[in-house]
Every structure is written in C-alpha cells, then in structure tokens.
Amino acid sequence: MTDETNKSLESTSPSDASTDAAEVAAASGSETKRSGSLLKSPWLWAGLCALSIAGSGIAIATVSATHFSPEREVKQYFELLEQGKSDRALGLLHATVPQGDAVLLSGDGLKAALDGFEASSLELETDTVESDPNQRTVTASYTFSGSEHQTVFTLRKARTDWLFFDKWEFVPVTLPVATVQAQYSPTATVNDSPSPLSTKKSAAKGSESNEPAWNVQTYPVLPPAIVKASYQTEFIKGSEQQQVLTDFTAKAPTISLGAEASDKLTDYVDAQLKDYLDRCADQQVLKPAGCPMDYATSARVRSSTINWDILEYPEAKVTLTSQGWSIEPLRGRAKIALQEQDLDSGELYTAQEQDTFEFRATLKVNGNRVTVTPDAFDYDPNNQA
C-alpha cells in the first residue's frame, strides 16, 4: 500500500505544479494588462504634469523671492553699509552725491554714522506703486539709537531673466545732507572726525546784529545715519548735538552749534578774579582802592592792625552773546580784623566783621589774550604795582 501511495503522489505532483504555474502566469498577465492600462490613461499623465508644474512654480517662486525680489536688493544695501562698502552701496543705489565733506561716507565717519543701528531688528515690507506696475516701494523698519525708524526705498523692474526671474534695481536717488554750522569756530568734529567749516554764511543785509557770520559745512550721508557734531577751541566750546537721518527726500534740520566758555576760559577768569581779590586783601586800609569791600567805623584805627581775608571767592559764570562775552554778577565774602581805639575813653579793643560784597566784571577775548576787568572800581588789570 505504501508503494501505491508513493506512485499516486509521484503521478499527481507534475500536474499540480503545472496548474499552479499557469495560474501565476495568468495573474501576472492580468496585472501587466492593468498597469499598461493605467500608464495609457490620459488622466494619470495630466495629474503628473499638474504636480510637476505646481512643484516648478513653487520652486520658481521661492528662488525669485529669495534672490530676485526688491527686498533682496534692500537687504543687500544694509549689508554693504554694515561691511563699510560705501562705494558698492552708492553704486547699488545709483546715487548722486551732493557737494560737501564726504567724511561720513567712508572709514570711521561711516562706521560712527551707523552707531546704534540694530541689524537684527530689520524688517522689510514691499508695496506696489499704483502709478507704475513696474515699481515697488520697500519700507525698512529698524531700531536705531534705541528708537524705531523707517526708511522707504523705491525700486523698478529692470528686466526678466530666464522668463521667470525679475531683476530689480533702485530708482536713482540723491543722497540727503546734514548741515552743521558754528559762529565761533572754523572747524568742527563730526562723528569723531575733524572737518573744516569752509563756507561762510553772512548775516542778513541791513541787520544791525554784532553776531559773527556762521561757518557752515554740508555732509552727504547714506541713510540711516546718525550725525554728531561739536567743537572745542582754547576758550570756546560747542557742546555735542546730534540728529538721525533716515529719509532720502525730507530736508534735515541744521545742527547749529552754540558757544560756551571752555573750562580753560572759566578757570582762567576765576584765577584772575582770585588774584584781584587777594591783592585787595593785601591793602591795610578800611576801603581797599578799586575793590568791592569796605569797613566803616568812627573809632581811631591803626592801619598796621588791619587784616583782610577773603572767605569766599566768586565763581564766574561766563556766557557769549551777540554783544560779546559777559560775566554774570559776582558775589563773595570777606572778613576784616583790626584794632580800634574809642575816641572818648581811649580804650583799645579788637574788632572783627564779615562783609558780603557784590561786583561785576567785563571780559574781552582777543585771540589768545584774555582780559578780565572788575567794573566801577577804577581797577587796572595791567597795573600790578
């Protein structure tokens, strides 16, 4: 029985294998036919084309926004400023540079002009120009010297590359200028750089003012820029003033540097007043000649016992007006000690008294020569006897 069974198995195995192979082949053929039908379907190819076009459109839009947008040009402008490449920034702007001192367009002057600009705060927003579809305005918002500012740039489409990518360029501009003027100095320090004030602005015709003419200079700048100006001569100083320029079109206000007495001049005036009062105190009289203090008594006084001391010296406050230098009223305090003799009894006694005094003084400055003259006391500063 075992042999019959084996024969039966041997006789049926080839047949079953052939049947299975046929079934697999039939199934494979069916799948191939279905795949071929799908590949021949116009809807499949239309879908694939649509996906391909959409992907290409996204890629083109991304590349265009990243490398060919108006905002990219503005961002590059700010990058060039931070790198100190003002020549390339000027070329990018197609800028016209007005006459003036170019100290703020390169080197330390340019670096100082950007002092306080926070690059991380830069935000750009593009708007269309209704009057010209080929132009765009880009508003740059940023923090500068701790405050929020904006600069508006106008760009135009120059051409289209490879059918899709628009090339943008700045509409040509003229750089704004900062103006610095001073009456009492031929030079100024602008953004830590010395600059001559070469142009003189005369007083108005018919004016009776004694004020000197203004010395003026203009400075082209690349916005945004901060301009700091001051001056210091031996006897006069103009305290630092500053302004921020962010606009290409608005006229910047003039920086007018005032005039104050320098520390050296004030110290010199104080020293001259001290010397004057010390010489007053050296006089052993009740009313020193040409001096503001005095002492009145009806008793007999021996001059050899008179001793004046200055307890409080005045501190001069010097100002400069259209009429010239002026010293505000001065105030001081002195003490006198002396021996008096009563005319009736003949008694001798020591007297002491403090005297608060006030006086005025005039000041003249002629080049390096300074003259301080106390008023109304017939005092001659040139007489040292």
Rank of each mutant, 00 (worst) to 15 (best):
W308C: 07
G324V: 05
E315W: 01
R333M: 14
Q339F: 06
T362F: 03
E315R: 14
P381R: 05
N382L: 11
P381T: 06
W308Q: 03
Y349A: 13
T305A: 05
A351D: 13
E353S: 13
N368A: 14
G346I: 10
P381I: 01
T362Y: 06
L330I: 07
E340L: 07
L338Q: 07
T305L: 03
E328W: 03
Q341F: 09
D309Q: 15
W308H: 00
D378W: 07
R369G: 07
T362K: 06
T319A: 11
R369T: 13
P329G: 06
L363A: 01
V370N: 02
I310Q: 07
W308Y: 00
Y379G: 08
S345Q: 06
Q352W: 02
T319I: 13
V365F: 06
Y349T: 12
D344Y: 15
I336P: 06
Y313K: 05
P374I: 04
E358I: 08
W325G: 00
L320A: 01
L348C: 10
A299T: 11
S322R: 07
P314A: 07
T356E: 11
D344E: 13
G367M: 12
A361R: 00
E347Y: 09
E315H: 11
E358D: 10
L343G: 02
I327G: 03
R369D: 12
I327Y: 04
P374C: 05
V370D: 02
N368R: 15
R331L: 06
E340Q: 09
Q341M: 14
D342E: 03
D342Y: 05
T350Q: 14
D355F: 09
Y379F: 14
D309K: 15
T371R: 10
T373M: 04
P381F: 05
R302H: 11
V301G: 04
F357D: 05
I336M: 08
F377M: 15
Y349Q: 13
D375R: 08
